[in-house]
Design a protein around this nucleic acid. Structure first.
Lengths: 246, 246
DNA sequence: CGCTGGTTTGAAGGTCGTCAAGAAGGGTGG
DNA sequence: CCACCCTTCTTGACGACCTTCAAACCAGCG
């Protein structure tokens, strides 16, 4: 049981970046010890909230988002197993976006002092966490670029390329297939489109024999053409980027 | 001369977040000691580059951006005096976006080990820097939301609201006026528009008596209506957010 | 003076949003 | 087991917003 906690998805992810010592793994397990089950739709952080917690997703799908004055929603990211959310803003006291889960999920709640302790007592682990946060920011930047320059088709292609690679890295996708419990409404809110146009775009991807989303399963028909369409270079996702001397 | 170096724009910014000791200020000054002048248009980091440096802007306007396969450009942010760029990715070895200056500028180059030393020897300063990076990420998220949900007019209003507040915090803007050396091409690349539509949008802002950009000077005519149009809540920019126990 | 980079304007067309409504699933209760 | 919800998906028509193409204008500068 203790072993299972040490061998979390996050532990595997960080371990691929810097090999972690048993002591560091124990620190990391302690950081994730406060686990809670959340039901589909449950909201964990509200924008503007103070004294909130950060989270590490253990299983299930989550999303971080902002609500606009006009009621619209922009989804920032979809944290999945091994991903963190709000860890940085836990040091500050104000959350800058909301966080909720899209499926039944298990998440670990992380408090500020706990995180500080972890970083000061295991600085190499701190660096590894910093790398993970850096990766998250790179994903947000990619998302920004994708939305800023690119039509619906390109955005969608890019999104699924990135998702496929992320899921693949944690063993939740094969080359051509993975589960994806995101509704077209949710996808639209992430890609800056309306649900209706999202639908049209998915149809186009299907008709062009590039990708099919059916019954919450994505099937990729032509990876090369899809990658080309998306202008996708996924180097920012994996840990094979060399690291500075530590 | 030494005093001037200690009292950098970044030092003032961080000091407003956590009061820094003379020792910490000295560390911070050392971090910024390697200053270089860069001519308008000079490029300091290329995407994908390894062994690159991070930068702290002392004066002038910069921009970080990504170039797409089709030649398009998406500008991520406009670092100005006191802002950092690429500090996080300096720990990794691969730059995830390009960085160049839009006006003649002075920037400090920061190397990985130097930054690490600074953080380990002055952890409170490290926390302050982390806060600054956190603020930068919040700005990117706001940018993403603005582009994802919002038409040209709203995006533009939001952009200038944020810019006004940032410049105001470092004493480079009054309530109604500030310099802005950004061409309409550059603005368009930041807001995900074409330069032509950027022009029409600026005209509309002018005709509606909201804001005028003329000869590189922005004049705000109606702050309230502009803020409403932008849906702008600038709380993420200043340091009045309470901090966790340090 | 001509050149260059930036700004401005017009016209036409495509992408995407809005409005409206129907179809297909999945769960619940009778 | 079926009727009845609900949510999600799907399709069509129309219009707004934004892009594309083309061209003129202006200011600064060698």
């Amino acid at each position: 049981m203790a072993d299972q906690r040490i061998d979390s998805v996050l532990a595997r992810k960080l371990n691929a970046f810097i090999p972690l010592s048993p002591g560091e793994l124990k620190h990391l397990a302690a950081l994730q010890s406060n686990q809670l089950k959340v039901r589909r739709g449950g909201q964990l952080t509200r924008e503007g909230q103070t004294g909130h917690k950060g989270f590490i997703v253990q299983s299930g799908w989550a999303c971080s988002f902002k609500i606009l004055p006009d009621g619209g929603r922009q989804i920032i990211s979809f944290p999945i197993a091994g991903d963190c959310c709000g860890l940085r803003s836990v040091l500050l006291r104000t959350a800058d976006h909301s966080f909720s889960v899209l499926t039944d999920a298990v998440v670990s709640a992380v408090e500020g002092p706990q995180l500080m302790k972890c970083i000061t007592e295991a600085p190499r682990l701190g660096t590894a966490l910093l790398w993970a946060l850096s990766r998250d920011e790179a994903m947000i930047v990619e998302h920004l670029v994708s939305i800023g320059r690119g039509n619906a088709l390109e955005r969608t292609a890019h999104f699924f390329m990135e998702l496929a690679e992320r899921l693949s890295l944690i063993g939740m996708a094969t080359e051509t297939k993975f589960e994806c419990p995101l509704s077209q409404f949710v996808l639209a809110d992430a890609l800056g489109l309306t649900a209706i146009h999202m639908n049209r775009t998915l149809r186009q991807l299907r008709e062009r024999q590039l990708l099919t989303l059916r019954k919450k399963v994505v099937t990729i028909h032509d990876l090369d053409r899809l990658r080309k369409l998306a202008g996708f270079q996924g180097g920012y996702l994996n840990s094979r980027t060399e690291t500075a001397q530590l």
